[in-house]
Write a protein that binds this DNA or RNA. Structure first.
Length: 899
DNA sequence: ATAGGGTTAG
């Protein structure tokens, strides 16, 4: 049997494929071809060999061709080709078309092209079939070139030609060419064909020309289910998800029955929109009409349940599908990744019969989604080494993985690779690169990229990334400045949910309740308020600004709550030191059935410190239930929170026991928690041990240095103390400067210790001096042990009196009305002297003073603080490696009372 | 079917 046929020489060797497309309207129309186009049947199904005038032998080429296609036997097909050549039939157009068809069906586009080139007079069917094939495999240039050549040769396009060329427009998202074809189709009266119109609808929908699609749909004289499906898909593309359901109902009212594509479009709408119930209804309907396991419906169900269901639903649909394609497997992989089941996803990946570029991207993105940056980078390396296909998706995920491992060197390598390989062009990739730089500590590089930003499309993303990077580094004011630059552009950035949530977080951190309220309005007007994450951020903003009532009323209005919402509610009570209420929330959370996460446990355990009565038992129970009931393994953070609570209630034996039983070596935060409790309860013996362990463990930690420094200064060894501090400075351990601030009329007034930069500082200092005298009359005794500098006693007071918190509070008293509370925010903990002072101030002035520090709120009223004077110097979660300890302000967090 | 930025905790 013949195996290969040398391809016949091309009849048009001089003609190159057209590389650039001129608009169709500018093409000169060829002379009218009097031969009527063959429109009665598909161009490629030309059966009935018996009617043919050639040999009816069973070995006739035509019959062989059919057999070859049925058996998917390429060798047989080639044999038929040989037979055709031998029978000198090869110049027959209809036989040639059958040959083209055979090669295309067997996936041999290049052979089909050779057969086409061998035809002396290709007809409309020859052209259409080949154009369609080029369109489907993403080669629009060849498709359009053939279309032009067909016209040049005077072959009139028919419906099939139009559908084919439009398919290529869809593939390359060329709406302009699409509308030119549209005009041409109208001119040649092919628009009445429902298939042509449907293809046109497809082009408009995919190219984002929704109005053109709407208009065409309205003008169509004949519609079928595909027409409706195309418009429904258009609504999905436009994010008008409720419209999809409306259209579906309309279609049914007009007597059409939805097919698998309609249902899968509905499910996509439900998955992307807010249609949990809608999606389940579609599932029920699919069951009823027996389409549940249809390939496209099944795939859409997998996607829907990944968004609005549980992993069991996803797996159930997937495994019952009788026929699965790459999309199905990739969907299942994504499902497992979304539900955090990385190993199951990898398992699916290993089992897949076939993988493509998207599959690899999904795996890579899944690793990123689950915080497995290192595995993501390994996979990326594997993709590169094996020369697998990569796309923008691959690159953005790889960059994302790199930002996740946050390694400067890797980030530079990846960055260099992107530049070298020249794939930096896409705006998505650039936005991802900027974000990576910001995350790997290359904030200057990020800024450089930002200022030379070329792409408008992803500007909001880069903007958000950069703001976020600044606020992560503690550069809050720079972050806000960037925020303003975005709003003041000629083309102001439109905030989306992400940006809004982030800026709200910033408002919360800074205590900017006025800006926060304005953003609340923005959220309400834009509809972004229904976004859970925006709701959560808004809630936290109010809570952190001391507006607990505004926060809780917002909570009750939120359309839905997730774990983060509940955590935020617990945290709100926690920073207001209302432990019992925080624990009540924990009960409600369980009643509602929301799954707690590891943060929930950090919060509720910490809440046991702020309960009215001893809640050591409660916190033991919580701690034990973590693993047994919720399958959450306690981390060292949970241990230090426990130690903090146990120590607070004086259960030092239990605290020691817990530390001894830790599965891993107790880390510094555990010892810090113990140390702080010992300070509070004056447990000297244990405190010394804790300090010793801390010193051994973290000789490099700033707070350890302060500890030693305090040790020296407390015993009057100033030189040693100062030397330690100098060491510390030389090692660059100094972190953010301490400051306190207050907002008034949307302006922030920020103070350092002994700060005289404020324009009204003369007034502030005289007021403070008067206030100090008044307080001293009322019994205030400055506690100079909070001054750690080698200075004379009178100077010590000077250092103490002008701590940033005191300056900010006095300024607040000066500028606000007598009935208003003074709200000050301090970026680290209040020192004991400031704390005592504020109590006197509140009673002497009769004003309410609220100071938010790193541990939460201190609300001073009539000489009493809401913290009950048992405030932690380490914050509510003792895991805080306190960065604030070293500040010139002198508000130290570790006191020397122990020694 | 796959991608960027954030919200709770630090």
């Amino acid at each position: 049997m013949a195996t290969t046929i040398p391809p016949p020489p091309s009849p048009f060797p001089h003609m190159k494929p057209l590389l650039s497309l001129s608009p169709l309207s500018s093409l000169s129309l060829p002379p009218f071809n009097p031969k009527p186009p063959n429109v009665s049947s598909s161009p490629l199904t030309q059966p009935n060999p018996t009617h043919h005038h050639h040999s009816p032998s069973p070995f006739a080429p035509r019959r062989l061709l059919r057999l070859a296609v049925d058996r998917r036997d390429l060798d047989l097909g080639r044999a038929a080709h040989a037979a055709a050549v031998k029978a000198q039939d090869i110049e027959d157009t209809r036989l040639g078309n059958a040959l083209i068809s055979m090669y295309l069906k067997l996936g041999r586009l290049s052979d089909a092209r050779k057969a086409f080139d061998a035809l002396p007079s290709p007809d409309v069917a020859s052209f259409s079939s080949l154009i369609s094939a080029y369109a489907k495999c993403g080669r629009p240039v060849e498709a359009a070139g053939l279309f032009c050549r067909m016209r040049f040769l005077g072959v009139e396009p028919n419906e099939f030609s139009f559908v084919a060329i439009l398919t290529s427009c869809i593939r390359q998202l060329d709406g302009r060419l699409g509308s030119q074809v549209h005009a041409f189709a109208v001119k040649t009266d092919h628009c009445s064909c429902v298939h042509v119109s449907n293809a046109l609808l497809g082009v408009y929908v995919k190219c984002g020309c929704a109005s053109a699609a709407d208009q065409l749909f309205g003008e169509m004289v004949e519609r079928d289910v595909s027409s409706w499906n195309a418009v429904m898909l258009g609504m999905v593309e436009e994010c008008r998800y409720d419209e999809v359901f409306r259209l579906f109902n309309l279609m049914q009212m007009e007597g059409y029955h939805g097919d698998g594509f309609s249902l899968s479009t509905l499910l996509t709408a439900a998955a992307h929109g807010f249609g949990g119930a809608g999606g389940e209804a579609v599932h029920a309907y699919a069951l009823k009409i027996g389409l549940e396991l249809d390939l496209s419906v099944g795939n859409a169900l997998v996607g829907f349940y990944t968004q609005f269901g549980c992993v069991e639903d996803v797996a159930d649909v997937f495994w019952r599908m009788p026929i699965k394609d790459v999309t199905s497997w990739t969907g299942m992989l994504t499902g497992y990744m979304e539900f955090g089941m990385v190993e199951s996803a990898v398992d699916i990946f290993d089992q897949m019969p076939e993988r493509n570029c998207v599959t690899y991207n999904a795996l890579l993105a899944g690793y990123c989604h689950n915080g497995e940056g290192a595995r993501g980078l390994d996979l990326f390396r594997h993709i590169l080494e094996n020369d697998l296909e990569i796309s923008d998706f691959t690159l953005t995920s790889a960059i994302n993985a790199c930002g996740m491992v946050s390694d400067l060197k890797t980030s530079e390598q990846v960055h260099a690779f992107m530049i070298k390989s020249g794939c930096k062009s896409s705006s998505w990739v650039e936005a991802a690169l900027l974000d990576m730089c910001a995350k790997c500590g290359r904030i200057e590089d990020a800024e450089k990229m930002f200022t030379s930003w070329a792409h408008e499309e992803s500007f909001p993303v880069a903007w958000t990334s950069l703001i976020c990077a600044h606020s992560r580094c503690g550069l809050h004011f720079e972050a806000l400045h960037l925020f303003q630059t975005g709003l003041r552009r000629d083309d102001p950035v439109v905030m989306d949910a992400f940006a809004l949530a982030m800026i709200l977080g910033l408002c919360g951190t800074l205590g900017f309740v006025e800006l926060g309220q304005q953003l609340h309005c923005v959220a309400t007007k834009s509809g972004l308020l229904s976004d859970v994450e925006v709701g959560n951020a808004l809630f936290s903003m109010y809570a952190k600004c001391g507006r607990l009532e505004d926060a809780t009323s917002l909570f009750s209005q939120m359309p839905q709550h997730d774990t983060v919402s509940w955590n935020a509610l617990i945290m709100a009570y926690l920073i207001h030191r209302q432990g019992d209420k925080a624990l009540d929330v924990w009960d409600s959370m369980n009643m509602v059935g929301v799954k707690p996460d590891f943060i929930t446990f950090l919060l509720v355990i910490s809440a046991c410190r702020y309960t009215r009565s001893n809640s050591v038992d409660v916190c033991h129970k919580l701690f034990q239930s973590m693993e047994s009931s919720y399958n959450i393994i306690p981390t060292s953070e949970h241990y230090s929170a426990m130690v903090d609570v146990l120590g607070y209630w004086g259960s030092f034996d239990e605290a020691e026991q817990l530390i001894k039983n830790m599965p891993s070596k107790p880390n510094a935060s555990v010892w810090r928690a113990l140390l702080d409790s010992c300070r509070l309860r004056s447990n000297m013996t244990l405190g010394r041990q804790a300090a010793q362990s801390l010193l051994e463990l973290e000789p490099q930690d700033p707070s350890t240095y302060v500890l030693i420094s305090n040790l020296y200064s407390a015993s009057g060894r100033w030189h040693c103390s100062e030397k330690v501090r100098q060491d510390m400075r030389e090692k660059g351990l100094q972190k953010h400067p301490v400051r306190s601030w207050i907002t008034h009329h949307s302006t922030m007034h920020s103070f350092y210790a002994r700060d005289r930069s404020h324009p009204q500082s003369k007034d502030i200092y005289s007021a403070l001096d008067i206030l100090i005298l008044e307080c001293m009359k009322a019994g205030y005794e400055p506690d100079t042990c909070f001054v750690l500098h080698e200075v004379e006693e009178y100077q010590k007071k000077n250092f103490l009196f002008y701590h940033s918190a005191k300056l900010a509070v006095v300024y607040g008293l000066l500028i606000s009305g007598p009935d208003q509370p003074v709200r000050v925010v301090k970026n680290i903990h209040l020192c004991g002297d400031c704390h005592a002072f504020m109590k006197y101030v509140s009673s002497v002035t009769g004003r309410e003073i609220s100071v938010r520090d790193a541990s939460g709120f201190h609300n001073f009223r009539a000489g009493v603080c809401s913290c009950g004077d048992y405030w932690s110097e380490l914050g509510y979660s003792s895991s805080t490696s306190d960065q604030s300890v070293l500040q010139p302000d002198g508000c130290m967090t570790v006191r020397e009372t122990l020694f």
